[in-house]
Amino acid sequence: KCTICLSMLEDGEDVRRLPCMHLFHQLCVDQWLAMSKKCPICR
Rank of each mutant, 00 (worst) to 15 (best):
G12H: 07
A34H: 06
D14W: 03
I4P: 02
A34G: 09
M35S: 13
C39E: 05
C42S: 04
K1A: 05
F24E: 04
E10I: 14
P19I: 06
E10H: 09
C28P: 01
K38V: 13
K37T: 09
K37H: 10
D14G: 14
P19L: 02
H25L: 00
C20V: 00
C20Q: 01
C28Y: 02
K38C: 13
S7V: 06
L27R: 15
V29S: 09
E13A: 11
Q26P: 12
S36V: 08
W32C: 06
L18D: 01
C42D: 05
L18E: 04
I41R: 11
C39W: 02
G12C: 07
A34N: 08
S7L: 11
R16F: 08
L9T: 04
E13N: 14
M35R: 12
T3A: 09
L9E: 01
E13Y: 05
D14Q: 13
V29A: 12
G12R: 07
M35W: 08
D14T: 10
L33M: 13
F24W: 03
V29F: 09
R17T: 09
P19S: 07
L6N: 15
C42H: 03
Q31T: 11
L27P: 12
T3F: 07
T3E: 06
C5R: 00
S36D: 15
K38L: 13
Q26G: 13
C2N: 02
E10R: 11
I41A: 13
A34S: 08
S36T: 11
C20S: 01
Q26Y: 06
R43E: 15
L6Y: 06
H22R: 00
L33G: 07
G12K: 08
S7R: 15
C2G: 00
S36L: 08
K38A: 11
C28F: 02
D11F: 09
R16E: 08
L23D: 14
K38F: 15
P19V: 02
H25A: 00
V29M: 10
C42Y: 02
D30W: 04
C5W: 00
C5M: 02
L33I: 07
C20G: 01
H25M: 00
C2D: 05
H25V: 00
H25I: 00
K38I: 07
V29H: 10
C39Q: 02
K1Q: 08
H22V: 00
V15S: 08
D11M: 05
M35G: 11
L18Q: 05
R16S: 08
M8R: 13
K37L: 08
C5L: 00
D14S: 12
E10V: 10
E10M: 11
T3G: 10
G12P: 04
H25R: 01
L9S: 02
C5F: 01
T3P: 05
H25D: 01
L33P: 06
D14K: 13
L23V: 12
K1G: 04
K1T: 08
R17P: 06
G12T: 11
D11W: 02
D30M: 06
K1D: 07
S7M: 12
P40D: 01
R43S: 15
V15I: 10
C28H: 04
Q26V: 09
K38G: 14
K37P: 04
H22S: 02
Q31C: 03
S7W: 02
C39G: 03
L27W: 09
L27I: 11
S36W: 12
A34D: 05
A34I: 09
D11S: 07
W32A: 13
K37W: 06
L33Y: 06
R16M: 10
K1S: 06
L9C: 06
I4Y: 09
C42V: 03
V15G: 08
L9W: 01
R43G: 15
G12A: 08
K37N: 02
E13M: 06
Q31K: 15
C42E: 03
L9N: 09
P40V: 01
V15A: 11
C2Q: 05
W32Q: 13
M21H: 13
C20A: 01
P19Y: 06
S36K: 12
M21F: 15
P19T: 04
C28W: 01
C28L: 00
C5S: 01
D14M: 07
Q26M: 09
E13V: 06
R43H: 15
L6D: 15
V15P: 00
R16D: 07
L6M: 09
C28N: 00
L18Y: 06
C20N: 10
T3Q: 15
L27G: 14
R43D: 15
V29W: 09
C42A: 03
